[in-house]
Design a protein around this nucleic acid. Structure first.
Length: 841
RNA sequence: GGACGUGUAGCUCAGCUGGUUAGAGCGUUCGCUUCACACGCGAGAGGCCGCAGGUUCGAGUCCUGCCACGUCCACCA
């Protein structure tokens, strides 16, 4: 035991020991019953971790450590989500390159010394992917170092990356099975499209942003020359107009249904149709339908079976040639090649010139759909994409998935309704293909017919044993590389899966589904999915979908949702807001246990203010635990025997109650409550109990033995209770006097702690003693004198029998030198003597 | 427009199934070189429990309505 205990260096010291001794290693001989399996969130490896990660990963670790002490064999892996757009974007910026699939692989390629982010160097897909791997490998090392420093009890031998072979194999295998069962399909359909990333995006990745716009009142023309006025925020889409639509009950427009009008500037004849979704209150009550200005257009287009007239290309610019039957030599030439914004400006000028714009555009602000990671508004383009059925078009499946949500436990419970809201509001299947590069490729090729066109109806698929494959470099069975992309040969599906299509399989990946069926059988379905509440609609839901489709079960039985970290202005901390706090300096400044204390104090699911004050408190607690332990252990260990003194028995009785409560709290996934109760007890233990008994413990005889036993018994249990929250401090103290790791000890047992035959009166002794001690302290404080000032007369109210059990301890702790008297009732009365001279003892 | 959550001391938050005078920590004030701890110890001050009704012997807690804030969804001509 050190003379001057300290927290400095405990993180490095114990991390090394835990690693060397395999303290947190998963024992794969355990049965499913004995295992507690955690589906750790794989953090996105693009940049750095922030305090939000420290916060939520600590929550998971608390549960892991508790379950381990409860005797469970805890499976606590770590994954890295390194596939996908964030990595691509980071690689582009970091190295000053961009992926150009037309480039050839250059094995000797090295990235530019001085990257110029404005002029990104085009490189081959393979070179690009290699850079993605190189950069993420660096980040993963830094992440692991931070998580170790934080004290996560992860088994670092169970790690995966969402782009590694195992993940790609699992993602491709699951996809092929979805395809075989008809749960995955490809179709040509209008899809939300990001013109900057040039990829389709899924419903779950949308967000609305308020943007300025304007209503333009535009005249369409009837055959008799009369005008029909519509209002639109997107006049540039007039060449894409396929119809006008009004509500079937709208008397103003009813006479027009079935007739045609011609579009301004382009003179295209379009029908006037009726549909319930048209809102008579909005604009002029009649709208133009374009392919496609927004998702309502898609609905109208589909339900009214209208043609497609696309104007906007995948780069977000107007196509060089207009759609049929818009004249190629007319007004359209003014728009070709322009961005949406430029085209709008120009077409407004043209409409003014032609007299078809009525009045001035009316400025408004309105919500516009964006890709959550994108900058410009989404467009809708028709393209061939892969989908997985998720209930968006199928009531039975949707209900089955809602039922799955009810089958699992939610912490906190109200999060379930977010899940149900989302599932209930789905309006299409899950779009999983992305026109990107650093992701899991679809394991699919197509035969090319004699004209060189892909035959989509009968894709060429690899056997599962071949997985993972990259169809752009691997060749389908029965073909040779020289048949690639030639008529009569084959071509690769060019797309990759969205990152959620892989991470939705995280339980299967971590548990090595099909690669190690024995292990999988011991882990799946898992016990816990910890995650943030903002990705219920993506990660949580998609994981449920995959497990339901593949295994006919839940992926895990509990979902634990953590809240966000808010900055002092109560805004969510996020990279895009630039208000993130990086955690390493906090761990260094306050110590990991102190930061964990802050995280552990937050209620499950509650958004929590970033509060260094709480870290200071946590550090104080950890230091106090060191010092109090050191003091309790300075008394020699008593021979085995009973705790006999009522005050000591009272201490252990309340400790047993605390253990009961803490256990209940952890079982309900509420570590904050367990910590609160433990901490409150600990301060009473230090400030009252130790102060009361230390005089007796310094002595000898049975009273001293009783106190010494109680001190050690209580300390033993307290270290276990604190071990999940303060793993370093608890381990440090444990090592002073006990063997092994506190983290492999059983959780304390309330029944074993509670002294035999203790009744309510006896259990209350410590509380009564502390109350009187408090009164004496108050009297001394009020008199502004030292706590060492003797009490010459003390009057206690009530039955002397109640006070007798602790009186000797109280005399010592409160320096009571005079007689103790008793009154039938009233207050405690304290009469003080002379203050001791300064500097004496 | 819908769903969910939150509103308690200057600040951050507890308050579980309704039950004495509403709690903790931080901050603040006052005091103490008390033999583990100055990264310490002790004590004090500080509260129309968002607002308005209702149920009840009794409401911070239950019910209804409203207000404010947050999140998600819907709307998007």
């Amino acid at each position: 035991m050190p003379d001057k205990p300290t927290l400095d260096g405990v993180e490095e010291k114990w991390d090394a020991v835990w690693q060397e001794q395999g303290t947190y290693r998963f024992d794969r001989s355990a049965t499913r019953e004995q295992v507690y399996a955690i589906d750790t969130p794989p953090p996105t490896v693009s940049g750095s971790l922030h305090v939000g990660h420290v916060f939520s990963y600590t929550h998971t670790d608390l549960v892991a450590r508790y379950q381990r002490m409860r005797g469970k064999v805890v499976f606590y892996p770590m994954g890295w989500d390194d596939n996908g757009l964030p990595t691509e974007r980071r690689v582009q910026n970091y190295y000053g390159v961009r992926c150009d699939p037309h480039q050839h692989y250059d094995p000797a390629f090295t990235p530019p010394e001085e990257p110029d982010p404005k002029a990104q160097l085009p490189i081959s897909r393979q070179n690009f992917v290699e850079l993605c791997h190189a950069l993420t490998a660096e980040d993963e090392k830094a992440f692991e170092a931070l998580f170790r420093r934080l004290g996560l009890s992860v088994d670092w031998e169970h790690t995966y990356a969402t782009i590694d072979d195992r993940s790609r194999r699992a993602a491709q295998r699951a996809f092929l099975r979805n395809l075989a069962r008809g749960e995955a399909y490809a179709t040509d359909a209008p899809t939300l499209w990001d013109v900057d990333f040039r990829t389709a995006v899924a419903q779950a990745e949308l967000e609305d942003r308020e943007l300025p716009g304007a209503y333009h009142r535009v005249a369409f023309h009837r055959p008799d020359g009369q005008a029909v006025h519509i209002e639109t925020t997107r006049p540039e889409l007039i060449p894409a107009c396929v119809a006008l639509v009004a509500h079937p009950d709208d008397a103003r427009y009813a006479p027009l249904f079935g007739s045609t009008v011609t579009t301004p500037l382009f003179g295209v004849e379009v029908p006037v149709v009726a549909h319930e979704l048209a809102d008579p209150e909005k604009g002029s009550g009649i709208a133009m339908i374009c392919t496609f200005g927004d998702v309502t257009d898609v609905t109208w287009w589909r339900e009214l079976q209208l043609p497609v007239r696309s104007c906007i290309g995948r780069d977000g610019r107007f196509l060089p040639a207009p759609p049929e039957p818009v004249p190629a030599d007319g007004a359209y030439t003014e728009l070709a090649g322009k961005t949406v914004k430029q085209a709008q400006k120009r077409i407004v000028e043209l409409l003014v010139d032609s007299g078809d714009l009525v009045g001035q555009p009316k400025p408004i602000t309105h919500p516009v759909k964006h890709f959550e990671k994108g900058d410009r508004p989404l467009e809708i383009v028709t393209s061939r994409q892969w989908y997985i059925r998720n209930g968006g078009r199928d009531t039975d499946l949707r209900e089955a998935l809602v039922a799955r949500g009810r089958e699992m436990s939610w912490q906190p419970a109200f999060m379930r309704s977010r899940y149900e809201n989302w599932v209930g509001g789905l309006n299409g299947d899950w779009l999983i293909s992305r026109q990107r590069f650093f992701g899991v490729p679809f394991p699919v090729w197509y035969r090319l017919d004699d004209a060189g066109e892909p035959v989509y109806d009968s894709p060429l698929l690899p056997a599962e044993e071949r997985l993972p494959v990259d169809p752009t470099s691997d060749v389908p069975d029965g073909y040779t590389e020289d048949q690639r992309d030639v008529p009569g040969g084959f071509t690769a599906d060019p797309d990759v899966m969205d990152t959620w299509a892989t991470s939705s399989l995280s339980p299967q990946i971590a548990a090595q589904w099909e690669d190690d069926p024995d292990l999988f059988g011991r882990l799946f379905p898992m016990d816990l999915r910890p995650q943030a509440h903002d990705i219920i609609r993506t990660w949580l839901f998609s994981t449920v979908v995959r497990a339901h489709l593949e295994h006919g079960s839940l992926p895990w039985t509990h979902a634990m949702l953590s809240g966000w970290i808010l900055d002092p202005d109560r805004k969510k901390m996020s990279k895009s807001k630039g208000n993130v706090v990086t955690p390493m300096h906090l761990l260094e400044q306050y110590g990991s246990d102190a930061v964990r204390y802050w995280a552990a104090s937050a209620r499950p699911g509650m958004d929590t203010a970033f509060d260094e004050g709480q870290m200071k408190v946590g550090r104080r607690l950890a230091v106090k635990l060191l010092n109090a332990s050191k003091f309790a252990l300075t008394f020699p260990e008593a021979a085995d025997g009973e705790v006999t003194e009522p005050l000591d028995r009272s201490l252990l009785a309340s400790l047993a109650d605390v253990v009961d409560e803490a256990t209940r709290a952890y079982e309900g996934y509420d570590p904050a409550r367990a910590l609160e109760r433990t901490e409150a007890f600990f301060w009473t233990f230090c400030d009252d109990y130790i102060e009361l008994v230390k005089g007796r413990a310094y002595g000898d005889g049975s009273g001293a033995d009783s106190a010494r036993r109680a001190l050690r018994t209580a300390l033993d249990a307290l270290l276990r209770l604190f071990a999940p929250v303060l793993p370093f401090t608890a381990e440090e103290v444990w090592s002073w006097w006990r063997d092994g790791s506190v983290h492999r000890q059983p959780w304390p047992d309330a029944a074993a702690l509670r002294p035999a035959g203790v009744d309510e009166t006896e259990a209350d002794v410590l509380r009564r003693a502390a109350e009187v001690l408090g009164e004496v302290r108050k009297a001394k404080s009020t008199a502004k004198t030292s706590q060492r000032t003797p009490v010459v007369r003390l009057v206690l109210p009530g039955d002397p029998e109640l006070h007798a059990p602790y009186l000797d301890d109280l005399r010592n702790a409160a320096v009571v030198e005079g007689e103790v008297e008793y009154a039938a009732d009233g207050e405690v009365q304290v009469e003080l003597g002379e203050a001791p001279a300064k500097g004496t003892r």
